[in-house]
Design a protein around this nucleic acid. Structure first.
Lengths: 154, 154
DNA sequence: TAAATTTTGTTCTAGTACGGAGTATTGTGA
DNA sequence: TCACAATACTCCGTACTAGAACAAAATTTA
């Protein structure tokens, strides 16, 4: 006979979280690729849009792309002349990243189009559903962050 | 003057979804790596555990790993002698994937440990919260799937 | 049954992803 | 002011990812 443990109650929720994310990546990613960008590239363009530019560190924090990855993403965008790396006058450790005119033109074209695309899916939910989901996700993400903190303080 | 559009109402929800997933990957991934596996490798071991094995196709569907990726993940697990590839007697197109005794030993050790780890985070939410979140996520993921279907039927 | 099509798995390409080592620069405490 | 710690990046190695092209085998269809 095999030892049985209780099936934890959180598994269905976890499963939905993973599936939801997969579905979102598919839906959002497919559209972004049609626009000629990869998802991380789009994130960078979208974050730099309507700003004077920023450091790699700040850009990484906003897009949730880690430093090692960011270098490569920026390399490819720079090659396509959509962004520009400048040295920071005030702090020579920093690199200042900004959209080129071509990058800005792409941003203006692509960003509203992508929002409209996402709206097509999210408008299937009511405002109340969205709000409720947002609350639940926030609770979970705080629970996870707290647990990570506990784990690191071992 | 710049053209302003309404900030769509779904953006905060979307943001939470992304952050939640990030937090989960960090929390779950860190533990899995401590156990000596990458997250996809863990998924494969966990899926094969307590089974007679299965085809690549079935394994891919259960773990949500696409076939192209799966080949590489299986290569590395095979190198470590945790899984075994056998040709299927009935259908020569298929490869039958199963845990080796070493793989099974690892499964028995690692799977309950990881569930216990996850429980530490999820137990911060009430059963009611979990249930509500599950419902919201299911609604969103169906909305996304439906939109993907519409998109593909253009 | 022979040809057309579908299914299954591998290979290839381009692009992430992450942590750690290495480098340059800046800030700080004695 | 000088040693030393902190900061901002880049580069490297390993692994994962989707998607497209492929070969082999099985199934469908004419």
């Amino acid at each position: 006979m095999k030892l049985k443990y209780e099936k934890p109650a959180f598994l269905p929720t976890l499963r939905e979280l993973v599936r939801c994310n997969q579905a979102f990546e598919r839906f959002s990613g497919a559209h972004v690729r049609m626009l000629g960008l990869t998802p991380p590239q789009f994130d960078v363009i979208a974050t730099l849009g309507n700003t004077e530019g920023m450091s790699c560190k700040e850009l990484g924090e906003k897009t949730l792309i880690t430093k090692g990855t960011l270098t490569g993403v920026l390399d490819r965008l720079e090659q396509r002349r959509l962004i520009e790396r400048r040295e920071d006058a005030a702090d020579a450790r920093r690199t200042h990243i900004a959209l080129t005119p071509a990058g800005d033109a792409l941003f203006v074209q692509v960003f509203p189009a992508h929002l409209a695309h996402l709206e097509r899916a999210f408008s299937r939910l009511s405002v109340a559903e969205l709000k409720q989901l947002q609350t639940g996700l926030a609770a979970l993400h705080h629970a996870l962050d707290k647990s990570v903190a506990v784990m690191n303080a071992d």
